[in-house]
């Protein structure tokens, strides 16, 4: 990918990411996040990491963000009434963001362009190459992660079931009509 394309894409990504925190409407923010994740996936694809790009879209832009949007819509969150964008929290957050940007910028500047123009190894970014690394060098970590996800899924099911179980143990008694005095 040429440098020009990279800068256009990077500008769009930063703009979308800024939209996530700046837009007052939560649905618009969530959509900005979808756009950001999608654009990051395009960055991955342009770096020959096709598998990671596809997974990024399936997991983040697809599954997780649909859930986010679903919850925002169900809770019917309203537009943030706080009209003043420059309160104390925002100032601290901006300062922290600038500090992190400065540190990251220093680190990446130190890397310089040492890796630019290097030849990619054969089969870089393909599923086979990634699977080899994942299942040969990081098997334990991979299995532990899958176990963690399984625990989360089982936990979600248990939490969702508990209300139903309680309801069965203590059936809700029919409400007796309350006698009203002095009416009718």
């Amino acid at each position: 990918m040429s440098e020009l394309w990279f800068y256009i894409l990077a500008g769009m990504t930063v703009a979308a990411a800024t939209g996530v925190v700046m837009l007052p409407n939560p649905v618009h923010s969530a959509l900005s996040l979808v756009a950001t994740l999608f654009l990051v996936a395009i960055h991955y694809a342009s770096l020959d990491a096709h598998l990671v790009a596809a997974l990024q879209i399936i997991v983040y832009a697809g599954a997780i963000m649909v859930l986010f949007l679903f919850v925002i819509m169900l809770l019917n969150l309203q537009t943030d009434p706080d009209e003043s964008p420059m309160n104390a929290t925002a100032a601290i957050a901006a300062g922290a963001a600038l500090a992190i940007a400065a540190v990251l910028g220093r680190v990446f500047y130190a890397f310089g362009t040492s890796g630019a123009g290097a030849e990619l190894p054969e089969g870089f970014g393909t599923t086979k190459a990634l699977a080899r690394v994942l299942f040969r060098e990081h098997t334990v970590a991979f299995e532990l992660t899958s176990l963690l996800l399984l625990v989360a899924v089982v936990g979600a099911v248990v939490l969702a079931q508990r209300d139903k179980h309680d309801a069965r143990v203590e059936p809700v008694e029919p409400v007796e009509p309350v006698e009203t005095e002095g009416q009718g």
């Binding site: 979808v34 096709h50 997974l55 879209i57 399936i58 832009a61 649909v66 819509m73 599923t127």
Partner: peptide, 25 residues
């Protein structure tokens, strides 16, 4: 020429939910 073709299909199917959700909202 995608070597992750089938994952691309799944990804696009996942993206197709947004149109429906946002139209209603």
């Amino acid at each position: 020429d995608l070597d992750v073709g089938i994952l691309y299909v799944v990804a696009m199917v996942a993206m197709s939910v947004y149109g429906v959700v946002l139209a209603g909202w």
